[in-house]
């Protein structure tokens, strides 16, 4: 079942074209990556999917609930980890704001629950942002830059959590990443976005061997 379907999407910001004729789709229980450099239009796509930006033309269909892990994590710095998580369930109403299940999914957050989110390390904040998004009980989790500004070991740990969530819960993930290596190792399919256009797409193992991608994003050393 297709959860997210984007067809011929074009977005313009005061004349400048941010996304140009972009089409992609995401099926249930898939992990798909959208790879691109800074300014390729990745964040614009996230904003369109979340309804924060209106498209100039094209169609966007989201079947189900979508929750976002925003770029830069964007935790509520002055609020406790627990309050961050609770507010992730804001749309659910009071009964849907019980955080117990999230602590079972992300036990590393348990000892941090009373800490102000702003005092945590980048990796811990990313975990809070993921937990907060999961509180919305999403059908699709959109992660905007999982690895940005984080140490490789921290990224590997977060990737491990996502793999587990995907395997155990059938979580559907759209991962927006600059780090092609990470994206291709985590996801089964990927799209490559350049200057607002999809220039390449396909299964991750195939893309990992594609010369155009390895030259542009992997320094030619992807093994």
């Amino acid at each position: 079942m297709t959860l997210v379907s984007v067809s011929s999407l074009t977005v313009r910001y005061s004349g400048a074209t941010a996304l140009d004729d972009v089409s992609l789709h995401l099926d249930r229980s898939e992990m798909v990556a959208l790879i691109g450099a800074n300014g390729a239009g990745k964040s614009t796509l996230v904003k369109v999917l979340s309804g924060l930006v209106a498209p100039a033309s094209g169609q966007v269909t989201v079947n189900g609930r979508l929750a976002q892990v925003p770029e830069g994590r964007e935790v509520f710095a002055d609020l406790s980890v627990d309050d961050n998580l609770r507010l992730g369930g804001w749309r659910n109403g009071r009964r849907g704001r019980d955080t117990t299940a999230i602590y079972e999914l992300l036990p590393a957050l348990v000892p941090l629950r009373r800490r102000a989110a702003g005092t945590l390390s980048g990796g811990q904040q990313q975990m809070v942002a993921i937990g907060r998004a999961l509180m919305g009980r999403p059908d699709v989790l959109v992660i905007d830059e999982l690895s940005l500004g984080l140490a490789p070991l921290v990224v590997e740990a977060l990737a491990g959590h996502l793999r587990d969530l995907h395997r155990d819960r059938g979580l559907t993930v759209l991962l927006i990443e600059q780090n092609a290596r990470l994206a291709l190792s985590l996801c089964s399919r990927a799209y490559v976005l350049e200057a607002g256009r999809i220039v390449l797409d396909g299964d991750a193992p195939v893309l990992a061997r594609d010369e155009r991608l390895t030259a542009a994003y992997l320094g030619g050393h992807y093994e």
Partner: peptide, 17 residues
């Protein structure tokens, strides 16, 4: 808490709805 959340990070407040 939602009021405090708007004070803390308006963008994130919009993200969580």
């Amino acid at each position: 808490k939602a009021l405090s959340a708007c004070a803390s990070n308006r963008y994130a407040a919009r993200v969580v709805g």
